[in-house]
């Protein structure tokens, strides 16, 4: 063993092999992102009578490895909107820092009254994403923005790494678009029916979606963040546990489920 202080905390060469120092210097050309590395899975959101409910689990995966289990993928903006991030976590953290800056700038440039609302924020983020894709240096995220528009009506919109944008009474990214979206559309097929939902109903629908996602999305987990955005502000809970959920039945399953012995 080598006990010199400069070796403290370093992987042992005899176990892991010599460290490849070429990773430390970037002699080569700067590379743009070609693929996401550490990723978050679905974000789901639905509008209701006086706001939007949005949720995402707290897992960040490295490929199929559940790498970080306490990563918060919802972030509030100016106390009035929530952005939910799917996709690359480092790009999410970059956007988070960028949004902090934007919020501070905005708070300083005008003395009172002007804040970017949900619609403004979504437009800005989608422009940023489109700009980066046009530079062939995309931010590898699929975002949902939940907030209110200029008339204090619920606002929900998506933007992805290509700059594609859309709004709908309910939205989901990633696996959620196939697993959660059909559930949500059952309750809110159009704007009119979304405008009839109460907050409690909307929260229940989202929780139901999170449960289905946990059961069927292998890159998900049972701890999640959920936020309710209304005129009164943002109500964000970051350490919710999935209720009435259990994998206990899995013990009894053999093979593909049809096997009995």
């Amino acid at each position: 063993m080598d006990h010199r202080p400069q070796q403290w905390g370093r992987p042992r060469d005899d176990v892991y092999g010599a460290y490849d120092a070429s990773y430390m210097q970037n002699n080569g050309p700067n590379q743009h992102t070609q693929q996401p590395i550490v990723t978050g899975t679905s974000v789901v959101a639905i509008k209701f009578k006086d706001g939007v409910v949005i949720a995402a689990d707290n897992l960040a995966s490295y490929g199929s490895l559940a790498r970080f289990t306490n990563v918060k993928r919802l972030r509030t903006f100016a106390g009035t909107s929530v952005v939910g991030f799917g996709g690359d976590v480092s790009d999410m953290q970059y956007l988070d820092r960028h949004l902090n800056e934007l919020a501070i700038d905005e708070a300083y440039t005008s003395e009172a009254g002007h804040t970017l609302n949900g619609r403004n924020l979504h437009k800005y983020l989608s422009k940023l994403l489109y700009h980066r894709r046009s530079k062939f240096d995309p931010l590898w995220n699929h975002l949902l923005v939940a907030g209110l528009d200029e008339d204090d009506k619920p606002f929900l919109a998506a933007a992805d790494l290509l700059g594609t944008t859309f709004t709908s009474p309910s939205l989901a990214t990633g696996f959620g678009s196939v697993l959660a979206q059909p559930i949500m559309r059952r309750y809110a097929p159009d704007e009119e029916s979304a405008a009839k939902l109460t907050k409690e109903e909307a929260v229940d629908i989202i929780k139901e979606c999170m449960k289905v996602l946990f059961y069927r999305d292998a890159r998900s987990m049972d701890e999640y963040s959920i936020a309710v955005v209304t005129k009164e502000g943002v109500e964000l809970k970051e350490n919710e546990k999935l209720e009435k959920q259990s994998w206990a039945f899995a013990d009894r399953i053999k093979g593909y489920g049809t096997q009995t012995v």
Partner: peptide, 9 residues
């Protein structure tokens, strides 16, 4: 394959 994050696709 990666960008849509959509396994079915």
């Amino acid at each position: 394959a990666m960008f849509s994050q959509n396994p079915v696709l």
